[in-house]
Amino acid sequence: MKLTLKIWRQGGKYKGELVTYQLNDVNPHMSFLEMLDVLNEELIAKKESPVAFEHDCREGICGTCSMVINGYPHGPQAKTTTCQLHMRHFKDGDTIVIEPFRARAFPVVRDLVVDRAAFDRIIQAGGYISVNTGQAQDANSTPIEKDLSAHAFDAAECIGCGACVAACPNASAMLFVSAKVSHLALLPQGKPEAARRVQNMVKQMDAEGFGMCSNVTACEAECPKGISVTNIARLNREFISSEFGSETQV
C-alpha cells in the first residue's frame, strides 16, 4: 500500500505543524504502530528526527498509545486502541492525519506524546480502597454476587488512556473518573469510602483543568474498552448522595 501521512510535529525544529510524509510499501498486516516504526526507520536513515509517539504493550492493555487518527482518538475502528489497529483497515492511496490527544490538562510533550499525569493525581486523590497490607480478611468471607462483580469489572477495564478526554468537545474526564468511582462503589469493599472518594476525585478533576460534562457521549463512542456512560450517571448519583449523606465533610 502507498500512504500519505500528515503528522503533527512539535518540539525540536518544529513549532507545532502538520508535516507530510509518503510511505510506499506498507504491508496490510502491519499494525498502525509498526507502520510508524517503518516511517521512523526511514527518517533515521535520512538522519532526520523520528516522530515521537508513546506505546509499550502493543496489546491494547497498558493505555500508553495515544493519538488521534483522522479525527478519531485511537482511529476509526470501534473499541480498538491504536496499537491494535491494523493497516488492513486502510486503503491504498489513503491520506492519514495523525495528531496528539488534545486537552488543556494533557500538555504536549513532543510530537504525538502528551503528559497524562493528571490522571494519576486524580487516582491519588481517592481512587483506591484504604486497606494496608496484611489487614485483609479471607477472600471468601464476603460473597459478591456474580453479576454485580461483573458490573464492577466492566468499569474496572478502563486503561487510563485518555481517549475519552480527547474525544470530548469540553475535554472532560468524566468517563475516566466515573469508571473508577463505579468500579469501587459497586463493590462492598469500596462502600465505606464511597462518599469521600467521589468528592475528592471530582475536586481533583476540576483542579486539573478538565472541562464539564455536557452529555455529548463522544467519550463512550471512542473509548477503546467500551466503558459505558451509565458510569457517569452513577458518578452523578454518588456525588449528589455524598453531598447529602456523608457525615465526613470534605
Binding site: Y128, I129, V131, T133, G134, Q135, A136, Q137, D138, A139, S149, A150, A152, F153, A156, H183, L184, L187, Q189, G190
Partner: peptide
C-alpha cells in the same frame, strides 16, 4: 485476600 480487599474483581 489482599487483592480482593483492594477491590480486584476476580
Amino acid at each position: 485476600d489482599q487483592a480482593v480487599a483492594q477491590g480486584v474483581p476476580f
